[in-house]
C-alpha cells in the first residue's frame, strides 16, 4: 500500500524538475504512468484550421447556464460564490465571445457522476456543470457553490484540494486549455500529486484564485477572481479563413 509519505517523497524528488507546464510523465499521479507519451512532442508549424478556433455564440448557450445554483427546483446547499475573471491570450489581448465551460463537485465533495463512489451526499439541487461566453472584454462570470475536497484512490488517504475544472478556447486551435482552478490557502496543495504535477511553484500559483471582496455580494455570496492567460496565437492579422 502506498502511503502519503511515499507519495510525498516522490513529489519532493521531482520538485522543480519540469517547466511551467505539468510534467506528462509524473509517477506520483499513478494513472499517468501508462498514459503519457514517452517520445518528445513533435514541433509543427500550424496551418489551416490550426490557426483558428471553433466559434460559439448565443445559439449555443443560454445565459442561465452560467448560474449553477438555478438548474434544479431548489437552492443547492453550500457556500454561494461568484467566480469571475478575464481570459487573455499570450500577448495580453482579451479573448472575446469565446466559450468557457466548468464542472465541479458539490459542497460535500461529491460529483454528479455515476463513477463517483465517495459516500458523501449528492445534492438534488446541484448538478455542477456550467458554461458561458466571455464578454467583449474577455470576462467570464459563474455563480456557483464552493466545491468540497474529496478522497480518491491514488494512494491511502489521498485527498484532492477543492477545485473547479475549467475548459477554455482561444482564438486559434493551439491555445486549447483544460485546467483546474483552486482556492487560496488550501492545506492540501502540498499533498496533491495532480496539483504538484506542475513542478514549478510560480506556475502552480497561476491556478489559485484570489478572494476579491469587490466581487462579494452583500448578504448573498463570496467573490473570487481568477484571470487565465492562454498561450500565444500564431495567426497574423491579415490571414483570412
Amino acid at each position: 500500500m502506498t502511503t502519503q509519505a511515499d507519495i510525498q517523497r516522490e513529489i519532493d524528488d521531482l520538485r522543480g524538475s519540469g517547466g511551467p507546464q505539468p510534467r506528462r510523465d509524473y509517477p506520483p499521479y499513478r494513472s499517468s504512468v501508462l498514459r503519457h507519451p514517452t517520445r518528445d512532442l513533435c514541433q509543427a508549424d500550424p496551418e489551416g484550421v490550426e490557426l483558428w478556433a471553433p466559434c460559439f455564440g448565443p445559439a449555443d448557450i443560454d445565459d442561465a447556464e452560467s448560474d449553477l445554483t438555478i438548474q434544479r427546483s431548489g437552492e443547492p446547499l453550500g457556500e454561494r460564490i461568484v467566480v469571475t475573471g478575464r481570459v487573455l491570450d499570450g500577448d495580453g489581448r482579451p479573448v472575446r465571445h469565446q466559450l468557457v465551460e466548468i464542472w465541479q463537485a458539490n459542497a460535500s465533495g461529491r460529483y454528479w457522476h455515476q463513477r463517483d463512489q465517495h459516500p458523501a451526499p449528492l445534492d438534488p439541487n446541484f448538478v455542477g456543470a456550467g458554461r458561458c461566453l466571455t464578454d467583449g472584454d474577455g470576462v467570464y462570470t459563474f455563480q456557483t457553490i464552493k466545491p468540497g475536497a474529496y478522497p480518491w484512490r491514488n494512494h491511502v488517504n489521498a485527498w484532492r484540494p477543492a477545485h473547479i475544472h475549467f475548459s477554455l478556447f482561444g482564438t486559434d486551435f493551439t491555445q486549447r486549455l483544460v485546467t483546474q482552478m483552486y482556492f487560496p490557502g488550501d492545506p492540501l496543495f502540498d499533498l496533491d500529486p495532480i496539483y504538484q504535477s506542475i513542478t514549478d511553484a510560480r506556475a502552480r500559483d497561476m491556478l489559485v484564485a484570489s478572494y476579491d471582496h469587490s466581487v462579494t455580494k452583500p448578504e448573498f455570496s463570496l467573490g473570487y477572481r481568477w484571470d487565465i492567460v492562454l498561450s500565444g496565437t500564431h495567426r497574423t492579422p491579415l490571414e483570412e479563413p
Partner: peptide
C-alpha cells in the same frame, strides 16, 4: 508572458 498550466480532465469530465 507565462501562460496558465493545464491539468488533467480527471475521471468526471
Amino acid at each position: 508572458m507565462t501562460f496558465a498550466p493545464g491539468q488533467t480532465v480527471g475521471p468526471f469530465f
